Amino acid sequence: MQEAPYQVLLYYLYTDIESPQEYRDAHKALCDELELRGRIIVGSEGINGTVSGTVENCKQYMEAMYADPMTQDIEFKIDPEQGHVFPKMSVKARDEIVTLGLGEEDFSPNECTGKYLDPKAWREAIRDPDAVIIDARNDYEWDLGHFKGAIRPPVPAFRDLPQWIRDNYEKFDGKKILTYCTGGIRCEKFSGFLVKEGFEDVSQLHGGIVKYGKDPEVKGEDFDGQCYVFDQRIGVPVNQVNPNVVARCVHCDIETERYVNCANKMCNAQHFCCEACEAESKRCCCDACRDVFTKEYEGVLQ
């Protein structure tokens, strides 16, 4: 089989960056030179990114990162692709490379984080009926796919998790807590937060769902649905052992993993919609949005 001409690189590293803005400018220049596309966030605490490019250009990018003493310990998760999965290249400097919003209570995962579990150890851990599995991603990511038995925190975003934990402290106190996310970066910070809050048995899936799905022995077992990714692919397969579909069309309730944005621009909500319902719903998430979209569309035509 011919090798795919492009690759997608997913990575992060918590490392001290003294001048994030200067690093951002130099890094953007490197990415542009290599004709990469993607999204990268740089902060004083490290770097977090996903990029796509040709196999050769991705190789040069990884070599440049390994050659820099500041990022030499970085780990890349690599997916083959037929082309770019991003429309452009964006590199931004921000206060946090993932937004947990702890303010003055913020810390580095290099100082405090939960215990690492490799894919094989994670597979065994989540089968413990007494374990509490907390998904550290956004709610719409859980809706597309998640580990069997995982809790979907009733909060819209990652930054809302600390307050939810504090509000439900007694429910998790004394429990074996397992947490996971897409590539590992969010649960590095979230698991450390749990440790700092006083929970004694906290573990995380090292490398996240993506690494779990690539493990040659585990092969993504016991992950239901697909893994949500922040690029044009939207979702990627994980489970090669006992896969199933968990998402359902909001209109007819059949199984589907087609995530689309509501055609009503004032809404734009991402929702599951099968091909058969897309035409009838005008790709809107509900009747109210369809009415608004229809009126706007007919107004333009008139």
Rank of each mutant, 00 (worst) to 15 (best):
M1S: 09
P5K: 03
Q7A: 10
Q7H: 15
T15Q: 03
I17F: 01
D25I: 05
D32R: 08
E33G: 02
E33F: 04
E35L: 11
L36K: 01
I41L: 14
V42M: 01
G43Y: 00
T50P: 00
T50R: 00
T54D: 04
V55M: 02
V55A: 13
E56N: 08
N57Y: 10
E63K: 14
A64D: 05
A64S: 14
D68A: 01
P69M: 04
M70F: 00
K77Q: 15
I78L: 09
D79S: 14
P80E: 12
G83N: 12
H84D: 02
V85D: 01
V85A: 00
V85L: 07
P87H: 14
P87A: 10
K88R: 13
V91K: 04
E96C: 02
L100A: 09
G103W: 08
G103M: 13
F107A: 01
S108M: 05
P109T: 05
K115L: 11
K115N: 12
Y116P: 02
L117G: 06
A121I: 03
I126K: 00
R127E: 14
I134R: 02
N138R: 03
E141P: 07
G145C: 08
G145V: 09
F147T: 06
F147W: 12
I151M: 10
R152D: 12
D160Q: 13
I165N: 10
R166M: 14
E170V: 03
D173F: 13
I177N: 10
L178M: 07
T179N: 12
T179D: 06
C181Q: 13
T182P: 04
T182A: 07
G184F: 15
I185L: 13
I185Y: 09
E188H: 09
S191Q: 06
S191E: 08
F193G: 08
L194M: 14
V195C: 15
K196D: 05
G198H: 06
G198T: 07
G198P: 15
V202R: 04
G208H: 07
G208K: 07
V210H: 11
E217N: 07
V218W: 03
K219M: 09
K219W: 01
D222L: 14
G225E: 05
G225A: 04
Q226E: 07
V229Y: 02
V236W: 00
V238M: 13
Q240K: 15
V245Y: 06
V246C: 04
H251P: 02
M266V: 07
Q270G: 14
C273W: 10
S281A: 15
C285W: 11
C285N: 12
F293A: 10
E296T: 11
Y297I: 03
